[in-house]
Design a protein around this nucleic acid. Sequence first.
DNA 1: GTCTATATTAGGATAGAC
DNA 2: GTCTATCCTAATATAGAC
Lengths: 196, 196
Amino acid sequence: MARTAGSHSDITGPRIREAALRLFAKHGYAAVSMRRIASEVGVQAGALYNYIPDKQALLFSLLKGHMDELLEAWDETAPGGDPLARLEAFVRFHIRFTLRRPESIFISYMELRNLEPENFIQIEALRGRYEAVLEQILRDGQAAGNLSVPDTRIAAFALIGMLTGVNTWYREGGRLSEDEVAALYWDMARKAVGAG
Amino acid sequence: MARTAGSHSDITGPRIREAALRLFAKHGYAAVSMRRIASEVGVQAGALYNYIPDKQALLFSLLKGHMDELLEAWDETAPGGDPLARLEAFVRFHIRFTLRRPESIFISYMELRNLEPENFIQIEALRGRYEAVLEQILRDGQAAGNLSVPDTRIAAFALIGMLTGVNTWYREGGRLSEDEVAALYWDMARKAVGAG
DNA sequence: GTCTATATTAGGATAGAC
DNA sequence: GTCTATCCTAATATAGAC
């Protein structure tokens, strides 16, 4: 949808972020030029700089937005009570989020190395908070005798790695629904932490 | 170690590959220039082209070399017999390989998107062969009643994701030895597939 | 707010001297 | 086999017209 001229401040900003997210996920931050993003949006490269100060800020904004959204979504979802129920909620939440925001999940750890040091520190801190959520659930479950893992910290990493890996094979419209995928992963995750 | 002149064909070739592997893993293929690789090796950029036709061929060569090495190493390691023993061997093999070749493992799936189509197809085929190894073990174990997973294909992806994730936290010289890490992961992997 | 035009820097790759 | 020098292309970012 090529366009010619005029003012579209309301929609251009979001469209820049959408295009950048999609292109960064597909080709990588360093491989995507500002011209290419602009072309996807239907403007010239110079117009992007009405919305972002530079390319790095665009990447940071996408990652920061993703992590904030992830943590807020969990805070709204998180149940209390039984550690095992909380673990199941976390697993299903993570799978659902990963399936619905595959590009955000993808760049949020693929493009960490392209963040400048200050930005990297901020994103890493948010990531750490998310991992700590799972580790706390595992610790509580261990203390309550609901489950048994050799090391709560490493078990948390192992579980997140297992769950996030769904991105490598899942394609929308495939043989399994979102709920079926979540059920499969919950079955394996539950057993992995000795709550079988 | 800057150098000035002379002929070093025996060592320059391998050093180019080592430098490229390290830099690609740290910063990403697209973010690393040929000049930077040359600088690490201690030659000028033009000299690289005595060893490789272009940058893309360098990336492909690294990924191809890694996958070949991975598959050959497994063929030499793979035991026969009991599916559960084969599964344990696979888990320990994968953890050991991942810990010893973190950079190769890292770029072998981070840089897939920077491969040109023909090259991508080749690497994907090799990756598929490796995943098929694990899936066959799971199928055999399922048939023999050694283990129980909801879906052998997805369980294979889940396990590989879990195991490869060790790269995100393991640092040499940390509190855990390679064998201890392998034991932790084997414990979780074994339980995850219902062979607890 | 967007365009066109451009300053400036850096990239991949090659040519020819040594 | 490596160096220096360079071609050519493309990148980020900015300036000024509309």
